[in-house]
Design a protein around this nucleic acid. Structure first.
Length: 422
RNA sequence: GUGGGCGUGGCGCAACGGUUAGCGCGUCGGGUUGUGGCCCCGAAGGCUGUGGGUUCGAAUCCCAUCGCUCACCCCA
């Protein structure tokens, strides 16, 4: 085998596409139901679009971005997440001037140069929602609600929602300092990674899986005791809102997000059936981000659902309608018969009836096998005998019943039959 | 970047170091000349990931390399 797909990049084969389409359609329907509009930013952006927000010392920026120099010497990258591009588009096009609150969603591929494993690819797909312009905790709740609704509609797997408040520029720094002081006292017992993180990104130590670190973290100061009154109140309101919607949530003080721009609300929906990469959706509030990107000083909340992981959950609705075969398979036994049916096929196809037309004649038996394999609902048989009688044979593959179809009325008759059975 | 597991026809697998590397699924053809899904028969399809080595003899043992995969890390 000479050519292979690039590591971490996967083909989505015809057999799995119906599941993707189903998930995408479901999501689009739900986004609409929540009053969100679709936006489609490009996949390639200037590096700064992401480095501003995600944070210079996060793994994503440090080592996971597909960065390269364009022919004109500009630094561009394949987007590692959606929010940066959406916000850039909002700012560049002045969308915030058109409406005080923007509710946007987007679907598409993201790229991160990580080591592939189950539920983690280098090109993966997300469905994202962003609410721009609202400080209200109800906006946070709605974004979480949206993620929950999409997940629930696509899978019946067990889901767990964790939420936390990361504080704001007023109350996080004091906490960060307190945590850092605490970690310094225990530095000797931390794992190697955490010893490093202690200085660069102390919050991350909180969700380290190392047992020794867990033991230390257990007695570490908690963010919730440092939250300023405004943040504490906000967090409480988000929880209340989720309660009244009926979404069960779990307060998780060690929940941290990988992107620097989050303030206050951070959340994560995971499922135990996924294995190591168990997070299927996540998001949070990013109030300072628009301004940091030299846009208007507007607050925002967003979330992302991982498509591959969502599909890994399985247990969704049936997708039979999408994976069904053609309405009609045309078995023509000689060239003259093809001449007869071609005009009819033109008409059917224009009407949206799916007609599978073989490229060459084989025996009728072989045609029947082909028709069976493609799961065609009906087969139209036309050969010398039919032409002599001026009537074709329409066979219903499910019932095995056949009936003659006079040539004169063939188009209309078959159209009616096919449209009725759709 | 670090570890573990695995690389055999399109897919899933088998073959105690010993003849032409098998089986299932799939594909194609046939089972009376124009009718599918079951059954039966037959056919096509493999330099056993690659490169070295050990041996009279390697899919099988050793080394290297590449790839896949799971986990760490990180995250959707």
């Amino acid at each position: 085998m000479s050519f292979k797909a690039v590591r971490g990049f996967k083909d989505i084969l015809p057999g799995e596409v119906p599941r993707w389409i189903h998930a995408e359609n479901t999501a689009r329907r739900i986004f609409r139901a929540f009053g969100f509009q679709e936006i489609r930013p490009p996949i390639l952006e200037y590096v700064e679009v992401f480095t501003r927000g995600i944070g210079q010392h996060t793994d994503i920026v440090e080592k996971e971005m597909y960065v390269f120099t364009d022919k004109n010497g500009e630094n561009v990258c394949l987007r590692p997440e959606a929010t940066g591009g959406v916000l850039r588009a909002v700012i560049e096009n002045g969308l915030a001037n058109e409406s005080p609150i923007l509710r946007l969603f987007t679907l598409g591929p993201m790229f991160r140069h990580e080591r592939p494993q189950k539920g983690r690819l280098r090109q993966f797909h997300q469905m994202n929602a962003e609410v721009i312009g609202s400080h209200s905790p109800h906006a946070d709740a709605e974004v979480i609600w949206l993620a929950w609704e999409i997940l629930r509609a696509c899978s019946s797997a067990e889901l767990i929602l964790d939420i936390n408040s990361l504080g704001c520029p007023a109350c996080r720094p004091p906490y960060r300092r307190a945590l850092q002081d605490f970690l310094e006292k225990n530095a000797g017992d931390l794992c190697q990674d955490c010893a490093r993180r202690r200085l660069t990104n102390p919050l991350r130590v909180l969700d380290c899986k190392n047992e020794a670190c867990k033991a230390i973290v257990a007695s570490a100061p908690h963010m919730d005791t440092y939250l300023c009154p405004a943040c504490a109140g906000h967090h409480e309101k988000v929880r209340e809102a989720l309660d009244s919607i009926g979404i069960p949530s779990r307060d998780n003080p060690s929940l941290v997000r990988g992107l620097d721009y989050y303030v206050r609300t951070a959340f994560e929906i995971s499922s135990p059936v996924l294995g190591s990469q168990s997070t299927v959706a996540a998001g949070g509030r990013y109030d300072g981000l628009l301004k940091a990107m030299e846009g208007p000083d507007l607050p925002g909340v967003g979330m992302a659902v991982g498509l591959e992981r969502l599909l890994l959950l399985g247990g969704g609705a049936n997708v039979s309608a999408l994976s069904a075969g053609p309405d009609l398979f045309v078995a023509y036994l000689d060239d003259e018969s093809l001449d007869t049916v071609l005009p009819w096929i033109i008409e059917w196809r224009r009407r949206g009836i799916s007609v599978l037309l073989p490229y060459e004649t084989v025996g009728l038996k072989a045609f029947m096998k082909q028709a069976d394999r493609t799961h065609a609902r009906f087969v139209l048989i036309i050969g010398e005998e039919e032409r002599a009688r001026r009537e074709g044979i329409l066979r219903d593959m499910a019932t095995r019943g056949q009936s003659p179809i006079p040539f004169d009325s063939a188009v209309a008759t078959i159209t009616t039959i096919l449209e009725e059975t759709t």
